[in-house]
Structures are given as structure tokens and as C-alpha cells.
């Protein structure tokens, strides 16, 4: 099981990545994360929404109200171009962290 801190830190890039594949809504995003992580990343469903709002406030995603198949109101989110750029940047950061960790655990001499 992944620690809470890691789950929280990876929230934004995960959501942005999922949205980069197309417009989606809260419940579907959660299902996608569960599927992708094979259940090893446990999200509290409700916590998704404050993150979505923060991302929207930062101008990385945009939302609109629509109707679901069952006729209920549903809020859809989609990625904006700033979001795409921010996502690239976040992925780079994670890549740096990951490769540093790998090198550290393999005991490779560090190249300066």
C-alpha cells in the first residue's frame, strides 16, 4: 500500500494525465486511478474534488456542468493547455526523483 503522502503528492499529475486522454468526471477518474494502480493506491473518493477545484483555480483544468446517462447533473472536467505544460513539468520532476532513487539503491557512482 502506498503511503498517504505519496498518494497526495501524486494526485495532481495523475488527474492531469487521466484528463489528458479526454474529458472525464469525478467518479470515472477515481475508477481509472483504482484500475491503473491495481488497487494499490487507495484514494478517499471525496478527497478528489478539492484537488480538482484547486487545479481549476490554478487554471490547469476547466469544468462544465452536463447531464449523465441517468439524467442526473454531472460536472465534467477537461485539460487546458496550461495544464498540459504543467503535467509535462510534473512528470519531469517525478522522473528525476525516480531515477535518483534508483541510482541510490543500486549503488551506482554518481556522475557529476
Amino acid at each position: 500500500m502506498v503511503s498517504k503522502e505519496l498518494v497526495a503528492a501524486s494526485g495532481a499529475p495523475l488527474i492531469l494525465s487521466i484528463l489528458s486522454r479526454g474529458e472525464s468526471y469525478g467518479y470515472a477518474i477515481i475508477q481509472e486511478v483504482r484500475g491503473l494502480s491495481g488497487g494499490r493506491m487507495q484514494w478517499t473518493d471525496g478527497m478528489l474534488y478539492p484537488v480538482l477545484h484547486r487545479l481549476e483555480e490554478q487554471g490547469l483544468i476547466r469544468s462544465r456542468w452536463g447531464i449523465s446517462e441517468t439524467g442526473r447533473k454531472r460536472r465534467y472536467y477537461r485539460l487546458r493547455s496550461e495544464g498540459g505544460r504543467a503535467l509535462k513539468d510534473m512528470m519531469n520532476q517525478w522522473q528525476v526523483v525516480f531515477s535518483t532513487l534508483m541510482k541510490a539503491s543500486e549503488g551506482e557512482p554518481c556522475a557529476t
Binding site: G26, Y27, D45, G46, Y49, H53, S68, T70, R72, K73, R74, R75
Partner: peptide
């Protein structure tokens, strides 16, 4: 109110 609408919609979908 909108947050609550969103959460309720999520809850109902989950229940479904």
C-alpha cells in the same frame, strides 16, 4: 451547494 451536488452525484453513482 455545487460541491454538495457533485458529491451527492458521486455517492448515487457509487450506490448504483
Amino acid at each position: 451547494g455545487q460541491d454538495l451536488d457533485e458529491l451527492e452525484s458521486h455517492l448515487r453513482e457509487q450506490i448504483g
